[in-house]
């Protein structure tokens, strides 16, 4: 294996293992919020997008409707469409291969691919496929482990799972808070959602903040 290919493989594997391991947190969170082990595993297999998966279990766990959960998860999934736009011209795939490529188009596979940009298109393609498939395998295995673990726990609060979910959301948003504007938006949306929680049906205070983001994005 050439030097370039082995760095790509190393990057892909390390990302796959570390990110895949968060699947434990998701599996546990899903079961803690009322999903069955089967539903938790299906979300990881079929939705396969961490933030969207945490969102749908978070919204339903907070008493939100299925529609609210789907809407929140889908708004978070929009970025995967943009990743597809970036990757498609490099992957140049059709038919079933495109279906597989689409399913593994997530933050990590796109990020590793873009990280290989200075090594050429071939390294980018390898980075995308290795990372996408690697994360897929580990994420699903660890989801099952987390879901079974949470199911065995009983009172999830005694194990802190009720705090693990918001901590996971915080860990996902933290790297995005790169400046004062982003931090103000985050604090503003958090306060808005808290204030609206007793007033609006569960789930809506969360979705409403996406519209705040859209309005601000259009104006700036």
């Amino acid at each position: 294996m050439s030097k370039v290919a082995s760095t790509t493989l190393r990057d892909s594997l390390s990302v796959s293992l570390t990110v895949g391991a968060y699947g434990v947190a998701f599996g546990a969170a899903a079961v803690a919020n009322g999903f069955t082990v089967l539903q938790s595993c299906l979300l990881s297999l079929l939705t396969f997008s961490g933030a969207s998966q945490f969102a749908v279990v978070g919204v339903l766990g907070a008493g939100g409707s299925a529609i609210s959960g789907i809407a929140t998860a889908s708004l978070l999934g929009v970025r995967n469409a943009l990743y597809g736009v970036i990757m498609a011209p490099r992957l140049k795939v059709k038919g079933l291969t495109r279906v597989v490529a689409a399913q593994i188009t997530i933050d990590e596979s796109t990020a590793v691919a873009l990280g290989q940009e200075n090594q050429g298109d071939e390294a980018m393609r390898k980075g995308f496929w290795y990372t996408g498939i690697g994360v897929f395998i580990f994420w699903n295995l660890f989801t099952l482990a987390g879901a079974l673990g949470a199911q065995a726990m009983g009172d999830i609060r005694a194990f802190g799972l009720d705090s693990a979910v918001p901590a996971a959301f915080l860990g996902l948003v933290w790297p995005r808070l790169t400046g004062n504007f982003e931090r103000s938006l985050a604090v503003g949306c958090a306060l808005f959602a808290i204030l609206m929680t007793p007033i609006l049906p569960a789930g809506l205070p969360i979705i409403a903040t996406a519209f705040i983001a859209i309005v601000i994005g259009l104006k700036r």
Binding site: A51, F54, A55, G58, V59, G61, A62, T72, L75, L76, V78, R79, L82, V165, P166, F169, L170, L172, V173, R176, L177, E182, L185, A186, V187, C189, A190, L191, F192, A193, I194, T197, P205, I206, I207, T209, A210, I212, A213, I214, I216, G217
Partner: peptide
């Protein structure tokens, strides 16, 4: 697309 995840994830932290 950069702002929506910040808004939704922050709201989720707060509500959860």
């Amino acid at each position: 697309n950069l702002l929506i995840p910040i808004a939704l994830l922050s709201a989720l932290v707060a509500v959860q």
